[in-house]
């Protein structure tokens, strides 16, 4: 998993509450055999005027030009500014996969759905919870300022606006450690490789038939 340290990223707004994982990546894409390549289908139903299918070339599809992801000023965004209960719905990891593949590295919202919040960390994304009033102010700033960037500092746990306002955020120290070091569950387990090898040696002595 990719490590997260600091980021100075262009911000894209997702100005509605209760955005669910079905909206982020509609059901038909679950049939895919891939974990990557979901970026073009992120928010498929809101982003395009037709219905998308897995594997489809999106470059010629009719765009919903009013949708934020389609506006040139937000192209290349790495930070998504969102409303409460972002990521509700199913436990599918396709949602963070799609955000990641699109290029989003961090999300800011007043609250996140719990499973989605956990799945973000598993996939190298940083979900940041800020006060609803702060998020409101950020939405106003963002709207008024073309090329609006936010500076995110994970070690310091701060979000800094272009005007220099600093907003602190909290997160679980263990999750922070994993994200800073790029450790997903597998990476963490890999830190115990010696334990696993020692265990295997002991099992092999008792049950050699398991190791043929």
């Amino acid at each position: 998993m990719r490590a997260f340290d600091t980021l100075d990223g262009l911000v894209v707004p997702m100005d509605r509450a209760n955005v669910d994982t079905d909206a982020m990546i509609p059901k038909q894409f679950l049939k895919s055999i891939r974990k990557s390549g979901f970026g073009p289908y992120l928010f498929d139903e809101w982003r395009y005027l037709d219905r998308g299918e897995p594997g489809q070339d999106c470059s010629k599809r009719p765009l919903n030009t009013g949708f934020s992801l389609n506006q040139p000023r937000y192209r290349g965004a790495q930070v998504m500014l969102a409303r409460e209960n972002f990521g509700c719905g199913s436990s599918r990891e396709h949602a963070p996969w799609a955000l990641d593949d699109y290029g989003i590295r961090a999300l800011i919202a007043p609250s996140f759905a719990e499973i989605f919040y956990g799945n973000c960390f598993k996939n190298g994304l940083l979900p940041i919870v800020l006060d609803a009033a702060v998020v409101d102010a950020l939405f106003r700033d963002l709207e008024a300022t073309p090329g609006y960037h936010l500076r995110i500092d994970l070690p310091a746990q701060t979000v800094t606006t272009p005007a220099g306002a600093v907003h602190g955020f909290t997160l679980d120290p263990f999750r922070k450690y994993c994200l800073l070091n790029g450790l997903d569950d597998i990476g963490l387990t890999m830190q115990h490789m010696d334990d696993i090898r020692a265990y295997e040696a002991q099992r092999r002595a008792v049950e050699p038939w398991l190791f043929d």
């Binding site: 990891e93 598993k122 569950d185 597998i186 387990t189 890999m190 696993i196 295997e200």
Partner: peptide, 15 residues
């Protein structure tokens, strides 16, 4: 689940 399938493939273990 699929994430755990990957975890077992990579580490022969599960949490």
């Amino acid at each position: 689940g699929t994430s755990e399938v990957e975890h077992v493939l990579a580490t022969q273990c599960l949490l």
